[in-house]
Design a protein around this nucleic acid. Structure first.
Lengths: 192, 192
DNA sequence: CGGTCTCTTGACGGAGTTCAAAGCTAGTGG
DNA sequence: CCACTAGCTTTGAACTCCGTCAAGAGACCG
């Protein structure tokens, strides 16, 4: 629970009482590797904070290809914000890539927090802003850079994360095939 | 001002008093076609609500190519959320594509609203969520669909907006060259 | 061991780009 | 109201990036 408290403190200032009240709404859940927190078609009824392990959030298109929106490792938040806020059926899968633990808050308790702890409204406004900024930057990168540049930058920014991922996962995140990623890796290794 | 009030009412319930207080913080600004609301390198000191006209929000990459993040027409909000919230120097341009009018609120007044009108915190949490969901959907589309599919869907979803845009702007939004867009248009017209 | 999953490699194909040239449109000034 | 210009759109040919298909070599796990 201490990780959750630290994460919240990093975003807003909040009284110990409110912190206690909010964190009390979470429950720890253990998820084994290859198990799903959410599948396409389900309604996402939770918002989660990862304390151990690693997840991938992805979409499967009409041809069966997987696009990874993001990875969530320790101290990352995880949900399908679209399905969670609209209680609509999800277009995403959330799968554990390692044995993991997540602190979960359900929809009703989060609404309760919004109503009774004003600071929580601010917390999620700020977090959503930051998430949005990150996605906006990634959108620009995807439009303006080729696969090799995106791979190099991913390696620079997330070197420790890459070591926990298979090339198949990395390729799905970069928006290319694992075959082409293999070509890129060869080219880079020859070039150095 | 009535458009702004309607837009806010669509997102949250708010007392007439708070509505009055918040809307009073905005000022109307006229912007001529081809003029900029924001340039790369500047700090974005405003958040705006378009009441007339049309804008494009775009990034220029190291090769000089423009990627359009989104268009903002009447009743759309417009800002560089990254630069505005962090008061960091912007990587984006915001340019009027038509003679336009925008209701502007500056950073200080928005912070004032966050502190003194709790509902405003919720308003922007909800709006940021919706914006984020829209970008997430576009990200998936960009990864999973080819240019022709993206163009067809853009035409279906925004037929009235497309008529106000040059093919150069449409291509920059779709992430292709205007030359290739021209090929797509020819192919579609032959196919029908 | 045996089976499944991952990574690599090569040949080929297609989506999208680059460069250059020509026609087209629309605004602007005389 | 016409002429001029600047920007927009189209077209064609060569080229690049990345995907597809197929096969083989490791690596991991029961």
């Amino acid at each position: 629970m201490i990780e959750l408290r630290n994460n919240i403190s990093n975003h807003i200032s909040i009284s110990e009482k409110d912190m206690e009240k909010f964190c009390g709404l979470f429950k720890a859940v253990q998820i084994k590797k290859k198990k799903f927190l959410l599948r396409e078609g389900e309604v996402c009824r939770f918002e989660g904070f990862v304390t151990r392990g690693l997840f991938r959030v992805y979409h499967v298109d009409q041809n069966g290809f997987e696009q990874i929106l993001y990875f969530a490792k320790e101290n990352w938040w995880i949900t399908d914000i679209d399905s969670f806020t609209n209680q609509s059926s999800s277009r995403l899968f959330i799968e554990a890539l390692e044995d993991s633990e997540v602190l979960i808050i359900n929809r009703g308790d989060k609404d309760y927090a919004y109503e009774h702890i004003p600071k929580i409204e601010r917390l999620f406004r700020i977090m959503t802003q930051k998430t949005h900024v990150a996605l906006q930057r990634r959108m620009i990168d995807n439009l303006s850079k080729n696969a090799e540049q995106r791979y190099m930058e991913f390696m620079e920014k997330q070197p420790q994360l890459i070591q926990r991922l298979s090339n198949i996962q990395i390729a799905a995140y970069l928006g290319i095939t694992n075959v082409f990623l293999s070509n890129i890796r060869k080219k880079i290794s020859l070039g150095s």
